[in-house]
Amino acid sequence: MATTEKPDFTGLRAVYINCTLKRSPERSHTQGVIDRSVAIMEGSGVSVDQIRAVDHDIATGVRPDMTEFGWDTDEWPALLSRVLAADILVIAGPIWLGDNSSVTRRVIERLYGYSGVLNEHGQYAYYGRVGGCLITGNEDGLKHCAMSILYSLQHIGFTVPPQSDAGWLGDVGPGPSYLDEGSGGPDNDFTNRNIAFMTYNLLHVALMIRRAGGFPAYGNQRAAWDAGIRPGDPNPEYR
């Protein structure tokens, strides 16, 4: 039964990956959107980690560690450990030419590179984690960008709650960005409502999964399937 009482989210952990094209300390409008969501998380007792991807040497590829495939350096394995330590992952980024930034795509490709690893229950590694996204820009494409990110996250094993995307769009075409004076971004009621709903929906689902002891491990265990234990198979070998 639905309840309007605020649950105790203390102990949950979230990581935000900012996929801006701007290196620190340059101002990131995507960070402005992230900050509003992070404030809700931290105000709810959640431990929050943040990564600005472009500040790190992330090799191109779809393997967990690209130094094993010819790259001299790769900071992704260390960043991935921070993702795996969290209950919630939020990928945030700008819109360019109507699509996600190149940094966003690289992060998703590197996440994909670990998706075949199994957890302690024999499920794919990201099972039991929750994913969402934040988008900002001053051109069309917010829903397209969110659709691409959320599809990718659920495909590799993250649980995607209802209304798990939010963002801000300024006037289409040249104009002020989110943090620019006079943009109206930080005061936009539609954006603020969606960010709040997204953030709490991520928290609710993450808490439900934690209380359940993880994502149910029946009918979705790769290790069991490979061993011949195949629930739902019309001709299961284990009978």
Rank of each mutant, 00 (worst) to 15 (best):
G70V: 10
G45E: 00
P174E: 12
L84R: 09
Y127D: 07
R27G: 06
A85G: 05
H29N: 08
R230I: 10
G228Q: 06
F190M: 15
M41C: 10
M198S: 01
R106K: 14
T104R: 09
S81K: 15
D8I: 08
S164E: 09
F69R: 10
A206K: 06
A85P: 01
W225Q: 14
N100A: 13
A59N: 08
N119V: 02
Y218K: 13
D74E: 02
Y238E: 13
G113H: 04
W168P: 03
L12I: 06
S164K: 10
Q221I: 07
T104F: 04
Q221N: 11
R211P: 00
I95G: 00
Q123E: 09
A39E: 04
Y126M: 05
L89R: 05
G185V: 06
D187A: 11
G43E: 01
Y218P: 02
H56I: 00
L89I: 04
L150Y: 00
D72S: 15
E181G: 11
H56P: 08
G32F: 03
V130P: 01
D187Y: 08
S37C: 06
E120M: 13
D226C: 12
L169Q: 15
I149G: 01
D99L: 15
E120N: 14
R105P: 11
G185Q: 02
G137S: 06
C133T: 11
A39N: 03
G157W: 09
A224W: 10
G184L: 03
I51H: 05
W225N: 12
G213H: 01
G116Q: 13
P231C: 12
A146K: 01
G185T: 08
P162H: 14
T73N: 14
W225H: 13
T67D: 10
I91K: 03
S37W: 05
Y124P: 07
V130N: 02
G32E: 02
N188L: 02
G167D: 02
A217V: 00
L21D: 12
N192L: 00
S44Q: 14
G185K: 05
L89Y: 04
D226K: 15
D65G: 09
D165L: 11
P231A: 11
P236A: 13
D140W: 14
T60E: 15
G175H: 09
R82Y: 01
Q123L: 07
T199V: 02
N119F: 03
A2T: 15
D226M: 14
D87M: 05
L12K: 00
R27Q: 12
H144A: 15
S152Y: 07
N18Q: 03
N138C: 11
M147G: 15
D65W: 05
A14P: 04
D8G: 08
E68M: 13
A125T: 12
G128H: 03
L97S: 14
R13C: 04
T159R: 14
G98D: 10
L79M: 06
N138E: 07
I209C: 05
R106L: 14
G232D: 12
R222H: 12
I17Q: 02
G228V: 07
A212R: 00
I135N: 02
N194D: 08
D72Q: 15
G184E: 01
G213W: 01
G157F: 05
P231L: 14
F197N: 13
G113W: 05
D8Y: 08
M208G: 09
Y114L: 14
P186A: 00
Q31D: 00
G185D: 05
